[in-house]
Structure formats: C-alpha cells, structure tokens
C-alpha cells in the first residue's frame, strides 16, 4: 500500500497534497496566533508559554509542542522529497525545449519549484532566528518572544527576508491549495469557482496576516 503510493507519480502527488494541506492548516493557526502581538508583550509571551504546557495535565511539559514539531517536520520532508523526485522526473520527461516557446502558465504556477526552495530556506532561517536564537540579531532571550520578534524586524534584512518569503508563500498557497483539491479528487466543474476563490482568499489572508507583523514593528505599532 505504502509502496503503491510512493512508486506512482499520482501517489507521490497525493502525498504532496496531504502534507501541503497539513502545512496550510498550521499556517492559518500560526497567523491567527501571531495577531496576539498587537495586544502587548504579556499576552504574546503568555501564548508562547502556553505552547509548552499545551495539552496539560494529560501531556507532559512540551510533549504537545514536540508532537506538532514532529508532524510538521515530517510533512516538510515528505513534501520536499516528493517535489524533488517528481521534478527530476518531469525534467527528464521533456528534455528538449521548443524552439518557438511562450510562457503561458500563471506566475504562481511557474514559480512553484523555486518558490518552494525559497520557502524551505526561509523555514531554516526562521527557526534559527526565533526558535533557537542561533542567528538572532539582538540578544536572544528565551521565553521573551515579543522582544525577539521586535529585534528581528528592527533590522532591514530581517524585514526583507520575511516579506519576500511571505510573498512566495502566498503564491505557493494559491496554486498549491487548488492543486491539492484536484490531486485528492475533490475538484469538479461546479465546485471549481469555490476552490479557486478559497485558494486566492487563503493566499491573500495568509500573506497580509503574516506581513502585518513586520509592518507593525516598522510603523512602531509593535515595539
């Protein structure tokens, strides 16, 4: 069963669709939680603390958090490995370009592969910056996420990296969400407008929602 999925181009695409939807679900929660930053350091830092005691008293300290991390990391790896293997195959299946060629696909569709690579690199930077603090600009303080976020978005490169990555994320979600609907067999003629609208809506809301944080810091709303 598992090998049927992994050996087939259709199966591998289904793996990408499911893991992609898991990550979109996470992004929605992450974006909504980010909005807490506009209500002051106490509320935001308390939320950061809650993530560690999530599921208590059933779950031990940080078990819920690590569970989520394992699911997300597995999703990112499966999504990336599938994309890499399918892309290699696609390039091999069309080795010769047309002499007379014209770009016809939408920008979001054409940038899925490189956009995905940019997002992968961004995730590494984002974790090293705000979770481990390894590449953090100011003095990284464990347990003070509010101050850490303000520090990151007080540097020009922090803002540039974040905003570029969020624009790439928006485009990736735009084609990715609609594609997942087709890959998982949910799309059809009558539902297509709804799926397209949902994909565009998700892309816009997520992009604007995430970018509002660095904009908030830049304009002094968050400081």
């Amino acid at each position: 069963m598992a090998s049927t999925f992994w050996q087939s181009t259709v199966g591998k695409k289904i793996v990408m669709g499911v893991t992609g939807l898991i990550m979109i679900g996470y992004l929605v929660v992450h974006m909504v939680a980010n909005a807490k930053i506009f209500f002051g350091p106490e509320e935001f830092n308390a939320y950061g603390h809650w993530l560690r005691v999530m599921g208590a008293p059933v779950l031990h300290h940080e078990w819920g958090l690590w569970g989520a991390r394992v699911i997300l990391l597995t999703s990112v790896i499966l999504h990336g490995v599938s994309a890499y293997q399918l892309s290699r195959r696609d390039i091999k299946a069309r080795p010769e370009k047309y002499v007379h060629s014209k770009p016809r696909m939408s920008y979001a569709t054409r940038t899925m592969r490189w956009g995905g690579v940019i997002l992968g690199l961004f995730i590494v930077w984002h974790v090293l910056d705000l979770t481990t603090g390894t590449v953090h600009s100011g003095g990284f303080q464990e347990g003070h996420p509010y101050q850490n976020v303000v520090d990151t978005f007080s540097t020009w490169y922090g803002n540039v990296i974040y905003i570029v990555a969020m624009l790439a994320m928006g485009m990736h979600v735009r084609h990715g969400f609609w594609s997942a609907a087709q890959t998982l067999g949910a799309g059809n003629r009558t539902r297509d407008r709804a799926f397209k609208a949902l994909a565009n809506g998700l892309a816009i809301v997520l992009t604007v929602g995430f970018i509002s944080v660095p904009v908030g810091v830049m304009t002094g709303v968050v400081s």
Partner: peptide, 21 residues
Amino acid sequence: VLDMVSQMDAEGFGGCTLTGE
C-alpha cells in the same frame, strides 16, 4: 486505473503539476 497509471509512469512520462496546458 492502477495498471494504466503504472504503465504511464513506466513509459517515462512526467507527473502532473496542474498547469492546465
């Protein structure tokens, strides 16, 4: 559907990225 998809893969065709072309 299982056999035709697996033959399609065996022939060296690429995968679908839903470009709509």
